[in-house]
Simulated scan of single mutants.
Amino acid sequence: MLRRLTLTAVASLAALSAAAPAATAVSPLVPLPPLPVLQDDWLGGQETQTRLTVTVSESGNPAADGVFELECGPAGGSHPAAQRACDLLDEAAASGENPFVPTDRNAMCTLQAGGPASARVQGTWEGETVDARFSRSNGCEISRWNKLVPVLPSAR
């Protein structure tokens, strides 16, 4: 969307520049201000804001199962631990880690079962689209889930 807005602004500027010679013959050239499309704060941070839908089932904690909205910057939504979840996601972004990346297919994982819990996280994190699924089907998936607590609930 930002690219489309930028291209539209550039095309409009080019069209105005083509019509400007007749107008500038009478008045001196005045520099144009910077295009707001190219400035980070023009959209009010919407491009980097985090908005996620977290769907959890069979976690072993009936209060933790369901669909929760999580918004960060500022923390809010129906998520029961919104501030702590946003803090965790901010720490991951600051360290350059993406907690939503699936486990490598070639990873050697312990064959342990962590229960039937499953989760899906959809939305936007740091301006990137997220559609991640989580389970507790083996050691790697259990570790991946645990690293995302409190975005995901502690499973029993």
Results as ranks from 00 to 15, higher is better:
A93D: 00
D90K: 10
G45F: 03
T55A: 05
R136E: 01
P21K: 01
A22V: 11
L52Y: 10
G96A: 00
V121A: 03
G76Q: 12
P116V: 08
R136A: 03
Q83N: 13
G76S: 14
V26Y: 10
N61S: 14
V10A: 13
G66H: 10
D40V: 10
G73M: 07
A117Q: 11
V67M: 15
V37K: 05
P74G: 04
S95F: 01
E141W: 04
L7T: 14
A119W: 07
F100N: 04
L13W: 08
E97I: 01
P150H: 04
G60K: 13
A92C: 08
D104R: 05
A63S: 14
G127Q: 03
L148S: 04
A9D: 14
A107D: 03
S17Y: 05
A117Y: 11
R84S: 12
G96R: 01
C109Q: 04
S27E: 09
P34N: 00
E126R: 02
W145Q: 03
R144D: 00
N146E: 14
S12G: 13
R120T: 14
S59H: 15
R133I: 11
G127P: 06
A94T: 09
A85Q: 09
V56C: 12
P62E: 15
L70T: 08
E47M: 12
A64P: 09
L35E: 14
A132N: 10
P34A: 01
A23M: 13
T6C: 07
P34L: 02
P31N: 02
P153L: 10
T103S: 15
G45S: 05
L38R: 04
A92H: 00
R144T: 01
G60N: 12
W145E: 02
D87F: 01
D41W: 04
P21E: 03
P74S: 11
